[in-house]
Amino acid sequence: MKKNIKISYFPGCTLKTTAKNFERSAVKAGGLIGIEMVELSKWNCCGVVTSLTSDDLMKHVAPIRNFVRAEEMKDQGLVNDSRMLILCSMCFNTMKRSNKRVRENAEDLKSINDFMYLEKDYNGSVGVVHYLELMAEIGFDNIAGKIKKQLKGLKIAPYYGCMLLRPKDIGIDDAEAPHIIEDFIGSVGAESVGWDAKSRCCGSYHTVNNKDIVVNLAKGIIENARLHGAEALITSCPLCAFNLDNRQKLIMEKDPNFRPMPVFYFTQLLALALGLGEEDIGLEGNFIDTKPLLKEKNLI
């Protein structure tokens, strides 16, 4: 039998606060499909959005410090995979971009290492991998073989958002025609719908001070999913989840005819299909009640 992947895991702030159900379902499900997640010690916030100007190297210090932690874990033999596993799409994008920048630019890496003179130097030896990519490596066929409960009849809109796909050198799949989430949906026995808005931005951080933008975009995305027959959306981003799930409250206030749609983290469906219990799936953390749909399909 193939050895488990034992890999360092960077949670990021939101998986410890509003997206605890994302983390728990991923960790528990991971244990059943051969992914052992070992949380980094003393990790810090990655900064969420990568700095896009050429002159502020300072904003890459926070991500890089986390890679120092990952190298330490490797040195201590706590992991058997040299990469860092990330779940949150925003953290994934930001960490991978900073890593790429210093791996390709020795001068930048030296500046950051000099600045963090109390830390060990980062040597650039840590890769970044998303949970979905790791599942693809294990093989969606193999995962399908471990499923206890086929999610038959559940029609899902795979929502990628921005940060899993763009820019191209960071994305985990084709920027315009991705299929990795569809592959996942197939592996748990559910059905994915083809639709137009799978990589359309949800409004992102405008949810803090310009909610109208988010309400308009989120409504458009959910209505497009429904138009194509979806009964629920799945995502890998806690900010998309908030905008698409919690902000439905504002959409309903604005439009009384709007029909709410459940939004899941993809790992919640994985946990459900693997036969994990409700405390591991964490459905109480989703804003729009997901239980009527799952009961209708005889899944809970």
């Binding site: 509003t18 925003m90 908030f242």
Partner: peptide
């Protein structure tokens, strides 16, 4: 961005990544 413009309800519910990214951008 004006921190006082964030309602108490949002301050409780917003994911940290929303708040951090808004302040990084604004």
């Amino acid at each position: 961005i004006n921190i006082d413009g964030i309602s108490d309800e949002d301050a409780k519910e917003l994911p940290s990544i929303a708040v951090v990214s808004a302040f990084r951008k604004f």
